[in-house]
Amino acid sequence: MFDIQTNNSLKKGDPSAFKDVFRLLYPRLKGYCKLFVPDDNKVEDLIQETFITLWEKRDSIKNDRSIESYLFVILRNNCLNFLRDEKLEQTISSVNVEEVSELQYLYQIDFLGKEEKSLEEQLVESLQVAVDELPDKMRQVFTLCKIEGRKQKEVAEEMGISLKMVEKHIAKAKEQIRKKLADQYPALIIIITLLLEK
């Protein structure tokens, strides 16, 4: 844990305190991020976003909350958003928890002081909730195409709507799922918007 002084200096906007935090935590946060994100450039992006968010939200850090856990949670959400966006581009063939990266628990204990749900489980859960909340038709189309992996053309014929409409439903559904997850993590809205534009 950082001492209270670092905590206070950071809140006051002291750049050298910020640099200390960066110096000490960069290697480990990178280690955590790499567990989920294979592309090194992307890892860098996510970590940079995380530190910038910390700096921007430094006023809202409570005294009893450690900077470590704060940073860690931001990074975890960033990774979650990244994986979600990747998932939405593929067929989500099984909404099952795939391989869980065991090493993440080491970082959880280090940063949060305890073991929590794995990122993979969180991802699946948040996707599931978001899909469930889609309007009927949109959910039907999205489930058939993206989860069951059916051809868009088939689905269009079956449901008696145009192929364009199917595409539109899917695009809208993705958008809505992203929005929904953005609402869950309002502090991260800026980052989510950035991700969406890519």
Partner: peptide
Amino acid sequence: KYFEGSASASEQMQLLKWIR
């Protein structure tokens, strides 16, 4: 090594077992 970010996956695993 872990703090420096240079611990290998198996070393991290070893640390996880220990820290649990």
